[in-house]
Computed example of a mutant assay.
Amino acid sequence: MHSISDPSRVRFIGPLTPLAPGLAAELLALGYASTSATNQLQLAAHLSRWLQAHGLGPGELTEAVIAQFLVERRRDYAHLYSLQALGPTLGYLRHLGVAPAAHPMVPVGVEEEMLARFRNYLWTVPGLVDTGGVALSLKEFHVMGDTRRAFTAEYKSQAVGFVLDDDRTIAEVARNIGCHEYTLRFSHQAGVDRWV
Results as ranks from 00 to 15, higher is better:
Leu28His: 13
Leu96Gln: 10
Ala153Ser: 13
Ala29Trp: 02
Arg117Asn: 03
Gly31Glu: 02
Leu122Ile: 10
Arg75Ala: 02
Gly59Glu: 03
Arg9Ile: 03
Arg185Leu: 14
Pro100Trp: 00
Cys179Tyr: 06
Glu140Gly: 03
Glu181Lys: 14
Arg148Val: 07
Arg194Cys: 03
Gln189Phe: 01
Ser8Leu: 05
Pro18Ser: 10
Leu83Ala: 04
Gly55Arg: 04
Pro107Met: 05
Gly133Pro: 08
Thr124Met: 01
Tyr81Phe: 03
Leu47Trp: 05
Val143Ser: 14
His95Trp: 02
Thr147Cys: 07
Gly59Cys: 05
Ala101Lys: 15
Pro15Lys: 09
Gln52Asp: 15
Thr38Lys: 07
Asp193Leu: 13
Tyr155Gly: 07
Asp6Gly: 01
Ala33Trp: 05
Asp130Leu: 09
Ser157Pro: 00
Ala29His: 08
Asp76Lys: 14
Arg175Asn: 11
Tyr92Ile: 03
Tyr121Ala: 01
Val98Met: 10
Leu16Asn: 04
Gln158Pro: 01
Cys179Arg: 04
Pro58Phe: 04
Val134Trp: 15
Leu23Phe: 14
Leu19Gly: 02
His103Ile: 12
Phe141Asn: 06
Gln158Leu: 13
Gly57His: 11
Ala190Arg: 15
Arg75Glu: 06
Ala99His: 07
Pro100Lys: 11
Arg117Asp: 02
Asp165Ser: 10
Gln40Thr: 12
Lys139Ala: 14
Phe69Pro: 02
Gly91Ser: 09
Pro15Ile: 03
Ala64Ile: 07
Ser157Asn: 08
Ala33Gln: 09
Pro88Thr: 05
Tyr155Leu: 11
Leu30Val: 02
Thr38Gln: 01
Tyr182Leu: 12
Arg148His: 14
Gly55Glu: 04
Pro15Leu: 05
Val143Glu: 15
Gly178Trp: 13
Gly91Met: 02
Glu172Leu: 11
Val173Arg: 08
Asn120Arg: 11
Phe69Gly: 01
Ala102Phe: 03
Pro88Asn: 04
Phe162Lys: 08
Gln42Tyr: 13
Tyr92Leu: 00
Thr131Asn: 11
Ala37Leu: 02
Gly22Phe: 09
Leu80Ala: 13
Ala33His: 09
Val163Gln: 09
Arg73Lys: 04
Thr124Glu: 00
Ala150Trp: 12
Tyr182Asn: 15
Ala78Asp: 00
Ser3Cys: 00
Val143Gly: 09
Ala78Pro: 00
Glu181Ala: 07
Ile177Arg: 10
Leu56Tyr: 06
Leu51Ala: 12
Gly91Gln: 03
Met144Lys: 13
Leu80Asn: 12
Gly97Val: 09
Ala25Gln: 14
Ser3Asp: 00
Pro7Leu: 09
Phe69His: 04
Gly127Trp: 10
Gly178Pro: 01
Arg9Ala: 11
Ala150Gly: 08
Ile66Gly: 01
Leu61Arg: 09
Arg194Val: 07
Gly31Tyr: 06
Glu112Phe: 00
Val10Met: 07
Ser137Cys: 10
Tyr121Gln: 03
Thr62Met: 01
His103Val: 14
Arg11Thr: 07
Asp193Lys: 15
